[in-house]
Write a protein that binds this DNA or RNA. Structure first.
Length: 414
RNA sequence: GCGGGUGUAGCUCAGUUGGUUAGAGCGCCAGAUUGUGGAUCUGGAUGUCGCCGGUUCAAUUCCGGUCACUCGCCCCA
């Protein structure tokens, strides 16, 4: 086994994997385009503060998962651990607030120093969308509908379930948080160690604990639904109604939460049971407070991100590579003609492969391995007649074709 | 970051109760077929038995460490 290994948690994408990824990014970009989302490309690293301010000082990502380094001018930079912060920063830097609403699609690598697992890498890839400037439930509905359409386009929608929840508005959440802390504090000594830490940082998370003891305590916890303001209830009702109107099925998961203060209203996740512990495939929510928190104008936003590697694992077969035409010279005289023919076919838009060496048999084997559709065989006999033997590699039939007609004959079969 | 499992050929895996030349299938290469691939047959090459150290006359096998992968937790895409 080779001793030269890639950095832990990083991964080479060999052509078959790369094709799978390209299919995912191309398809999602295309479908996002139908919804009016245009691609935005932001840098792969930002000033560390961009992520610290958006993700909060206590989040796991900021406290232990960022690839942060100092560059030669002494600035603290961080490889982006997620995509929203960069888009929000671009929105502020570019003073785009008078063009609202804005609809962005992005794709690219993200970096988190986590312990790798299946579906969890240190460099991974995401696709995502951000819809800025729409404060009404229409935005949430459109974002979720787009997510569902992307999954459908990829052929994986039926392998996922959509779960949604509401985090309410700030008023609802503050009230609920206080009630929750009061409730759980009574049980503090009985909670698991993890949950005791969550009581400080993010009490909502306790609701989703997998610890059996915690679950018993959670069962008696006050319900968020009882603390939603009428406005927040109405907002959520409209989101649900919109999804139903579009035929998007969902379940409500009251334990689906987001930790940071700027999240509000709708949180949603498309999950699968096919990927073990990393079941979340596409997830997002509304973040009306984010841009304001970063120092920009108060601007509502809703968006989601999806893991390309996780999506790739749900796609059983990668899309087939395009099938080439194999040009096969027989004898050294034919080599120069083969080079010309190959070049002409490439200029005409065909994928043409000119084997580099070997006799006819060997080159035919190579053509077969490349899954070539046709072989163009150039030997002395054919060349004497300014023709080539055109062999259909699927049927095994072959016929001589004048060189001048080769291009049109091949074009007919496309 | 915490706990468990695994690591033998390019891939999937057998095997060695510690003993001399470590195996299979698939794949790869060559030939049967010097102008015809896919099927078949014949032959060939695979390899620090993850890495480092310890115990031992002897370690791929036992022990320790380490690295990688993997499962769960945490968290997330």
């Amino acid at each position: 086994m080779a001793s030269l290994q890639p950095v832990r948690g990083t991964h080479d994408l060999l052509p078959e994997d790369a094709r799978r990824h390209r299919f995912i990014t191309d398809m999602s970009r295309f479908i996002a385009g139908r919804f009016g989302f245009e691609e935005i490309v932001t840098p792969i690293f930002e000033f560390t503060d961009v992520f610290k301010r958006t993700l909060g000082d206590t989040s796991d990502i900021v406290t232990k998962e960022m690839y942060t380094f100092e560059d030669r001018s002494g600035d603290s930079l961080t490889l982006r651990p997620e995509g929203t912060a960069g888009v929000a920063r671009a929105f502020i830097s570019g003073a785009l607030s008078n063009n609202l609403p804005l609809k962005f699609f992005y794709t690219g690598p993200m970096f988190r120093h986590e312990r790798p697992q299946k579906g969890r890498l240190r460099q991974f890839h995401q696709i995502g969308v951000e819809l800025l400037g729409v404060a009404t439930p229409q935005g949430d509905i459109e974002a979720i509908a787009l997510g569902a359409e992307v999954l459908r386009g990829l052929g994986v929608l039926d392998k996922t379930q959509l779960e949604i929840n509401t985090l309410g508005d700030k008023e609802s959440r503050d009230a609920y948080r206080a009630v929750l802390i009061a409730y759980f504090s009574d049980f503090a000594d009985k909670l698991s160690e993890d949950s005791r830490a969550r009581l400080e940082r993010n009490p909502l998370r306790i609701l989703d604990s997998k610890d059996d003891g915690d679950k018993r305590i959670v069962a008696g916890a006050p319900s968020f639904a009882d603390h939603l303001t009428p406005a927040a209830q109405d907002f959520f009702a409209q989101v649900k109604a919109g999804l139903s109107l579009l035929g998007i099925s969902f379940t409500i998961n009251p334990r689906l939460v987001r930790g940071l203060d700027y999240y509000c209203h709708t949180a949603f996740e498309f999950t699968t049971d096919a990927l073990g512990a990393q079941g979340t495939v596409l997830a997002g929510g509304r973040y009306d407070g984010l841009i304001g928190t970063m120092g920009g104008p108060q601007t509502p936003g809703v968006g989601w991100a999806a893991g390309v590697e996780r999506l790739a694992m749900l796609i059983p077969e990668p899309p087939a590579a395009e099938r080439p035409v194999a040009v096969i010279p027989v004898g050294s005289l034919a080599e120069t003609v083969a080079l010309q023919v190959t070049h002409a076919l490439r200029k005409a838009g065909f994928i043409a492969d000119l084997g580099y060496s070997g006799n006819l048999s060997k080159r035919m084997k190579r053509a077969n391995k490349l899954n070539a559709r046709f072989a163009v065989i150039l030997g002395d006999d054919e060349l004497a007649r300014k023709a080539a033997m055109l062999r259909d590699l699927d049927s095994g039939e072959q016929a001589e074709v004048p060189l001048l007609e080769l291009r049109d004959r091949l074009a007919q079969t496309r």
